[in-house]
Write a protein that binds this DNA or RNA. Structure first.
Lengths: 248, 248
DNA sequence: TTGGCGGTTTGATCTGTATCAAGGCTCGGT
DNA sequence: ACCGAGCCTTGATACAGATCAAACCGCCAA
């Protein structure tokens, strides 16, 4: 295996699901070798379902490239997105054999899967893994709580602004650090997916995106290509006080 | 220290924050002795604030008795509860030195605190702790996601029914197992706190509670004492399909 | 006994978002 | 070049829940 940098992101680390420096510094070690032996890749096309809620799930996985969503659906069809998985994010729960959510690829997707049983055994033997997983899970929990504030208390306009800010910042951090100018990205979600994320209808999403455009908070080229001329302005619209918090 | 049962709850285990059988079976061991040395108790009166968001937090803790809430507040005062801590629940995040949320005692409260630095060191040495914490955090994440569905997609009536069902079930599981009859409990939250939990106003909470009473789904004695004659009926009103999921 | 206060209920009205409906844009296939 | 499907926008209207306002209840203290 290739030598790895210390403070790496998943793509550079290839297939190590545990991208923490302490573990990656050991990439040559036994424990990573054991991870190698239980892993396999799966690819999905945009729109494909990775797994349905309630299905038997005999693996855990991390996203290598692409974006996946976790959604919950009520009997009458109301849907709520409860997680957005970007590269290096982890899915699956050690110690549970059924999926709790629908997992769907919203773009073309590659996942690095690990068979669950041996993964759990490995976790029992190598404390780093549980510690790293704990750290990641706590990050996700923080993100979920931020999301709860959004769902419970923000207006439609604030919700849209929040989502755009989240995507813009995640996107920027995956690219170059601290480029001061405008942020530019392609929306990875349809209007309907945005609605499912935000607890709105797709019509309301469309209206509010148009409103933000009309008011000069964002610029649009086509439906998906977004330009954020001023992130501070956008964050103000989002109603976020703390700019430190980074969400999923 | 006293001998502990295996499948115990926190109260019986006294001060062990890690109530998992594997750890508790070792209550006589060195590692628990070390926990003993870094722990202390704090008591709070109903309504007191344990810690404000942004404050320095040099401990982690678990609830011994009473109920605490985690809330987030926006600049203009909009509030959203993002966590409800019942006995044996854990607060605080290893590897972070500031509180991310306001923590408030809604009833008289006793917490068992552990100084963070030594707790982290101990966690590094004893894998059980990280594993148990991971398990608990994953449970909380599941609860948070269920909560997101509630906030994003449920009607006011469904929200109230969901909250009552959550409290009734948690309460029942703390008392006797599988008592088939009516469930009876005292609401530990004011109408306003319920509203902050559910992303509603207190007036709407009041109206919907009255409506559920009028429709015979619940019975009330005074403002707080609730009787659930038929849990299945209540869960139907809550719009929950899966009855297996247990929330915070 | 009175007054005041926190928590709660209830009523009247307003408003933001959902719902229903129609039409537009874009891209790929025939 | 045309068609159709998917996705998106826009308009008209309906409604759930917010907001504003008043009054109630139980309880404690003076």
């Amino acid at each position: 295996m290739a030598q790895h940098d210390l403070n790496i992101v998943h793509q550079q680390c290839g297939d190590c699901p545990i991208r923490h420096r302490a573990v990656c510094a050991r990439c040559e070690s036994d424990e990573l070798q054991q991870l190698e032996e239980i892993k396999y890749y799966r690819s999905f096309q945009a729109g494909q379902t990775v797994i349905w809620s309630g299905d038997r799930m005999d693996f855990v996985a991390s996203v290598v490239t692409g974006i996946a969503t976790l959604t919950q659906t009520m009997e009458d069809g109301r849907r709520q997105m409860v997680g957005l998985l970007l590269p290096s994010d982890f899915v699956g729960r050690p110690g549970r054999d059924k999926a709790a959510y629908d997992v769907t690829a919203t773009t073309d997707l590659v996942m690095c899967c690990f068979r669950k049983k041996p993964f759990e055994e490995l976790m029992g033997k190598t404390p780093h893994i549980a510690q790293r997983l704990l750290e990641m899970t706590l990050d996700e929990l923080d993100a979920a709580r931020e999301w709860m504030l959004l769902l419970g208390r923000k207006t439609a306009r604030e919700k849209i602004a929040s989502l755009l800010a989240i995507i813009a910042r995640r996107d920027a951090s995956l690219k170059l650090k601290s480029q001061k100018g405008a942020l530019i990205f392609d929306l990875p979600l349809t209007r309907e997916e945005m609605a499912d994320y935000l607890g709105l209808t797709l019509e309301t999403v469309s209206r509010q995106v148009s409103a933000l455009k009309r008011d000069g908070v964002i610029e649009l080229q086509g439906k998906r290509h977004v330009i954020i001329p001023n992130l501070d302005r956008l964050m103000e619209e989002a109603g976020d006080d703390s700019d430190g918090g980074f969400l999923i």
